[in-house]
Design a protein around this nucleic acid. Structure first.
Lengths: 206, 206, 206, 206
DNA sequence: TTATAAACGAGACGGTACGTCCTGTCTTTTA
DNA sequence: TAAAAGACAGGACGTACCGTCTCGTTTATAA
């Protein structure tokens, strides 16, 4: 799902005939763990690579060997730590949608994940990094939600004339906009209110 | 509109009989100008007060004397530089709304303003600063948009049972979500797509 | 006797109308003191600027602000610390000469001074630094010794046909040669043996 | 002539019944060659073992396996590279002496050898290393010169009351002192002047 | 022949120091 | 009394080597 090092590539079939002393995977984990912990304690701005190295009991060059910049380290750490997405489907699209949105919005606005997205957005350069994050985090979640909306439309729970992509943006946007605007994690009640409002507007003939 | 310094007060009537050498207003302008320029060139993270002082040909303490922190300097600079909001109204609320939203979204997601909002949001502390920004930037714009929606509702262009605040959140949220999801300024077409969809959902009987 | 900083010049008459906060002379002394102490404890090779800064309770940039390189710091420290040269003359040139040579050779081969000379010599570049050391340390001492030899020659204690410069080279050279050949400080006995031999060769008619 | 490695012992009779892959002698040569080359290019201080390994296309541990420290590597390299000493004798001791001194002084003050002597002297510890260098380099040369002086004294070319050791120190010392003082290799003319002066002073009755 | 054992390249590792940059505060002289 | 200039302690930056340590591989002798 994520090959660690910046420049290396997976080449899945090959059993990696690398030369030299192999990197110690436990260090990787320790660094990522320390990064996540410090992100939570200090936030992105205050996080320093020095502190990460100290916390994970690793030499500073050992961090730089794997991640050349702070943002790459943080993105990687967040991606590895993000809870895996498990979608449970019933035959009630509204319930499914509400449940998944609630979970994802909470995840996004409470943990370090949201902070990381902001830090990423704030960077003008680094489009590849943004793409990496989108590919491994945003898109899979978005697609899962779109699938649900798609089913709902097919079942007639939603009007047929809607741009579902935009509809999804409305929901996710409203939630993140609240977070964004008042700085607090968006709780279940707020999310539910948003979803309900949108669903009510977009309700189909059935 | 904004009395810059931390401890100073305006005392508008008094012609300021203060002792000692008076502050040079041109320095203030130079600093603000340099800040805006460097924000554009480097982004918030890479911006340093040192660079601002150098660029504006001012000693570093002269900057600190007026703005104690980077974020306060940046917020102030952005507020002073933000284009003033001119609302032109016709008797077609949809057109008015679309036009103003498009303008504001573009302004927000392309210039240094957006960067500053992100930097502000990324900070957990500093609520007073967020409030300052909200008061001087966000709320006026939001209110202008709400006025338009209000008129539309009164004219019957919108369903009568809507929470207009939430409706506005949907639009602005979707736009900002697109922005910080793919990292690009939100163009006119995207904005129009969002507004159209919402309008379609909220369309009144007329 | 020596104005510290690399690029500054004394301009003795002017009372230095420099702007900005002046450098704190006590820091200069502390740094020099720490340098001398560490030179004695560790030797030139093991000496680090970091340790100097720590020992003298000063930030590292404060050291670099004054001395851009280790060798310049060390040379300056040694020059400031070198015992001032006090020449006592009697009317027995041989005794005077022996006494002064013994003192200087001991000083040179036992303390940190010698180490510094070696470090300097070992550098192929930095001729200006060598010249600085020669001007402020070597030449004054050499001239004092030449004065004594000159008197001796005038009094007839030395043969009249001698190149006194070469004669002095012989003495100083032999001493330093012993020093860096067997690595030990040259003791009084050895120095006396050298001086005696040379004097015996160069003895005048009287 | 020199068993390189730190912990190994010669045990000359035994043909080394070691198991495992034997060390590759060509690597030793490559390392020594790279060391000498880099000594010339960079000087002792700037020389790094890393650079030696890279230049000689060898892994760093391969260097450390043979020489535990930089100074030992350098001393060994210099000793192996020093031109072998060939003494040609005539029945003119002055000419023989002048010739040999000139050769040795040039060798000492122009190549990396002098630098190494200085680096060695600069170290307070490592007496065994100093002794090793003295035994394999300095003493043989010194003895050869002493032999010549001895013959000269016996033939009456030198005064009989002289301490020949000191006399030799005078010559070698004066030469190295010049090198030491102005940082340039001592050329033939300078050496000749020194020898001539000393010889003139020490000339015997014949 | 087949172990066994050391040498070898490559490179990871914890560390230390480098020299630079920036922070936010302070101390001067100048206006 | 503020401005300007710049010193200051402190701390993080990203890099270079240090000397040690695993690896996988090669190359010799010993069983």
């Amino acid at each position: 799902m994520s090959n660690s090092a910046g420049s290396e590539q997976a080449s899945p079939g090959t059993p990696a005939p690398r030369r030299g002393r192999p990197r110690d995977d436990r260090l990787e984990q320790a660094i990522v763990g320390a990064t996540i912990a410090l992100l939570g304690e200090l936030g992105y701005d205050e996080l320093t690579i020095e502190a990460v190295a100290t916390r994970s009991k690793v030499g500073r060059p050992t961090v730089y060997r794997r991640w050349p910049t702070k943002i790459e380290l943080v993105v990687d750490a967040v991606l590895r730590t993000a809870p895996s997405m498990t979608v449970v489907r019933s035959n009630d699209p509204l319930a499914d949608f509400t449940g998944l949105v609630t979970k994802l919005v909470a995840e996004m606005t409470s943990s370090s994940i949201g902070r990381t997205v902001l830090a990423l957005t704030a960077r003008s350069d680094d489009d590849t990094l943004k793409e990496k994050f989108a590919e491994h985090y945003l898109r899979p979640r978005r697609n899962a939600l779109l699938d649900i909306l798609d089913d709902a439309a097919r079942q007639g729970d939603l009007r047929g004339d809607l741009d579902l992509e935009v509809l999804l943006d409305l929901v996710l946007g409203a939630a993140s906009y609240q977070w964004f605007t008042n700085g607090q994690p968006v709780d279940t009640a707020s999310t539910r209110r948003i979803v309900t409002t949108v669903w009510q507007l977009a309700r189909g003939p059935r």
